[in-house]
């Protein structure tokens, strides 16, 4: 069991040596992960939102992706059952994890001969993956809850007119318009249509302190404006 290793392993041409052979392979693997990490950090602009505003209780926070499964799990425990999700289930999981080597005591390490350990850990992994996926799917459907008619050329034309009439007093677009509010020339590449709709309905979702007022538009008119803006890329 205790394999104290043979001395003088560090010889050239000994592929089993930890140093330098194995360390080299290990370093290559780490280098690959490092490259992927730097690439991801470079491509994905890490978000920094508005500064924290303790008074803004309308903000709906999302946890980091690796906590999403837990967030999703908590949705199934309400009222007096909340404590099951926040305390008893994590405690049970942790206890099981710690006790694993004392429960799975068969002498074999072959995963095929350890059905209980295999089934339990597989169930755990499947649950985490499924809950994460479920959380992402529910988020998406929540964001796009507003039902939008497909974009037509007439809508875009009408949207441009409405925009010129109301929005351009403050917002600039294609070099024309006001300077009180952000330039919307390329808004379509920054925001999707559902988000634009929600900002028009409730400007404060962008910022608590926005001076943008709620423009009285009918649903059809709002769809026209959002159609126009979402095509401004």
């Amino acid at each position: 069991m205790m394999n104290r290793d043979a001395p003088s392993a560090t010889q050239a041409g000994n592929p089993g040596s930890f140093y330098p052979n194995h360390l080299f392979v290990e370093s290559l693997a780490a280098l690959a992960v490092f490259a992927a990490t730097v690439l991801a950090a470079y491509v994905w602009q890490v978000p920094l939102e508005e500064m924290a505003d303790p008074g803004d209780t309308t903000y709906v926070p999302r946890p980091e992706w690796y906590f999403l499964f837990y967030f999703q799990l908590l949705k199934y425990f309400e009222g007096p059952l909340v404590v099951v999700g926040t305390f008893f289930l994590p405690l049970l999981t942790l206890t099981l994890l710690i006790l694993l080597p004392f429960l799975d005591t068969s002498p074999t390490t072959d995963i095929r001969k350890r059905p209980c350990a295999a089934a339990l850990s597989l169930a755990g992994v499947v649950a985490v993956v499924a809950l994460t996926a479920l959380s992402v799917v529910e988020d998406e459907s929540h964001v796009d809850k507003i039902v939008l008619p497909p974009i037509t050329e007439e809508q875009i034309t009408a949207g441009r007119e409405i925009f010129n009439k109301f929005c351009m007093l403050c917002h600039a677009i294609d070099g024309k318009g006001g300077f009180m509010a952000p330039d919307l020339t390329q808004i379509g590449s920054r925001a999707n249509r559902a988000y634009i709709e929600r900002v028009i309905i409730n400007p404060q979702i962008v910022s608590q302190t926005t001076i943008m007022s709620v423009i009285p538009l009918s649903d059809a008119e709002r769809h026209e404006v959002s159609a126009f803006l979402s095509r401004k890329k």
Partner: peptide, 28 residues
């Protein structure tokens, strides 16, 4: 540093032994 890595955990001998590199990557 001076010890042998068993064949079953050595990616140079067993390609699937790359899974034994995960711990080292965690450290990195």
């Amino acid at each position: 540093a001076d010890h042998q890595v068993p064949d079953h955990a050595n990616p140079l001998k067993t390609p699937t032994a790359l899974i034994y590199c995960f711990g080292g990557i965690c450290l990195f």
